[in-house]
């Protein structure tokens, strides 16, 4: 059913478009301090680039690039980065998630350290949002079987 839909134009365009989408997503995450953007938006674009590959190719193509184990690990890695930055502030002697104290370990002053801490948790949020989008889409689109046309 799905194999019949095998269009060379769609496949080529999606393959060429995907790296640019991912670079744009990283730009949205990293430039979120100065322009509209941040972890949630960039993570959604990153996840959408993988979902585009699933739609244009098939699930196995994406699972070669982002295996299920890696995806599940990255789900929790983002939350761990977020909570770990908060815990670092706690260890250094400030309140939980009070990034100003990070100037003791980073080569910047206290105000810039807050921006650095913000960037760190944006990266964590982006990783979590990306892998949750991919896992929700793969599980719902294939009914949990992770193979083509397996929904019953």
């Amino acid at each position: 059913m799905i194999k019949d839909f095998d269009n060379i134009i769609i496949k080529t365009v999606c393959r060429i478009l995907t790296p640019f989408l991912q670079i744009f997503a990283l730009y949205v995450i990293a430039h979120g301090h100065y322009s509209p953007g941040g972890g949630f938006q960039g993570g959604c674009i990153l996840g959408a680039s993988f979902i585009l590959l699933v739609i244009a190719y098939d699930i196995d193509t994406v699972k070669k690039r982002m295996s299920e184990k890696l995806n599940t690990v990255m789900c929790s890695l983002g939350v761990i980065i977020y909570a770990g930055i908060g815990l670092t502030c706690l260890i250094l002697g400030a309140n939980y998630l009070d990034y100003g104290i990070l100037h003791r370990v980073l080569p910047v002053d206290a105000v810039k350290a807050r921006a650095m801490g913000t960037l760190g948790i944006e990266i964590g949020v982006g990783i979590t949002v990306m892998s949750v989008m991919i896992s929700i889409f793969l599980n719902i689109a294939s009914g949990g079987k992770h193979e083509e046309g397996a929904i019953d």
């Binding site: 979120g32 301090h33 100065y34 322009s35 941040g38 810039k112 807050r114 921006a115 801490g117």
Partner: peptide, 14 residues
């Protein structure tokens, strides 16, 4: 306080 011009980001994360 946070050296972040985008207020949405600074409120969201800080």
């Amino acid at each position: 306080e946070t050296a972040t011009p985008n207020i949405v980001t600074s409120v969201l994360a800080d």
